Amino acid sequence: MEAVEMLVRLRLRPGIGRVANAALHVLGVDFPASVRVGPGLALPHGAVGLVVHEDTVIGANVKIYQGVTIGRSDTHLTGARADGGRVVVEDDVVIGAGAVVLFRSGSTTTIGRGAVVGANAVVLRSVPPGEIWAGNPARPTRRSEPSS
């Protein structure tokens, strides 16, 4: 297990959690303790620059590369609700370097099981299971190949 992945796991432990969270911030990773994470999270390259919204749910065997942002898209709008909404990343998803996955307050953006979000893609709506999305704004390019 990589050091950053270990710190993400330790952030939930009483006492050491604060130290782990501080270490993540020093490494340029904003990964709040409220984020629910399944087993097998992989953060290649230390996930430098990773920012994850506090209400995000991440499934099992997810790989998130460096420079990814998962968060709200409408914080700039006057009168936008500050509560509700989140991103749900289902099992076996890959989110490429520099990708941005956004939700609007009060709604959920889901990255379906086995989906791939390409590098530097900007996802503004849910991605169905097994699809590969790329571009800005992100659109489906093709179905991903099932892993054996």
Rank of each mutant, 00 (worst) to 15 (best):
A3G: 04
E5S: 10
L7Q: 11
V8A: 02
R9T: 12
R9C: 04
R9N: 06
L10M: 15
R11I: 08
R13P: 00
R13H: 03
P14Q: 13
P14K: 11
G17H: 10
R18K: 14
R18W: 02
V19C: 03
N21R: 15
A22M: 12
A23F: 09
A23S: 13
H25F: 14
L27F: 06
V29W: 11
D30G: 04
D30M: 09
F31C: 11
P32E: 07
S34F: 01
S34D: 01
R36K: 13
R36A: 15
P39G: 07
G40V: 07
A42H: 08
A42R: 15
L43K: 02
L43V: 09
L43A: 01
P44H: 08
P44I: 14
A47M: 13
V48G: 00
V48D: 00
V51S: 10
V51N: 13
V52D: 12
H53Y: 03
E54D: 11
D55R: 14
T56G: 07
V57R: 15
I58E: 01
I58C: 05
N61S: 13
K63N: 13
Y65D: 00
Y65I: 01
Y65E: 05
Q66P: 13
Q66Y: 15
G67R: 05
V68T: 04
V68L: 06
I70M: 03
I70C: 06
G71C: 02
G71S: 09
R72V: 03
R72Q: 10
S73V: 06
T75D: 02
L77I: 13
T78G: 07
T78A: 09
A82Y: 02
A82H: 05
D83R: 14
G85I: 08
R86M: 03
V87N: 02
V87M: 08
E90K: 02
E90M: 04
E90C: 09
D91W: 01
V93I: 02
V93H: 06
V94K: 03
I95R: 02
G96M: 06
A97V: 14
A97P: 04
G98E: 06
G98Y: 13
G98M: 06
V101K: 00
L102W: 01
F103W: 01
G106E: 13
S107N: 04
S107T: 15
S107M: 03
T108Y: 10
T109I: 05
T110N: 01
G112F: 01
R113I: 07
R113V: 10
G114Q: 05
G114I: 03
A115C: 07
V116T: 14
G118N: 14
G118D: 11
G118W: 11
N120Y: 10
A121G: 15
A121Y: 10
A121V: 07
V123Y: 08
V123Q: 06
L124R: 12
R125H: 14
S126V: 00
S126T: 06
V127P: 09
P129Y: 02
G130Y: 03
W133P: 00
W133G: 05
W133D: 03
A134K: 02
G135W: 12
G135C: 11
G135D: 12
N136K: 00
N136M: 09
P137W: 01
A138N: 05
R139A: 15
P140I: 01
P140V: 01
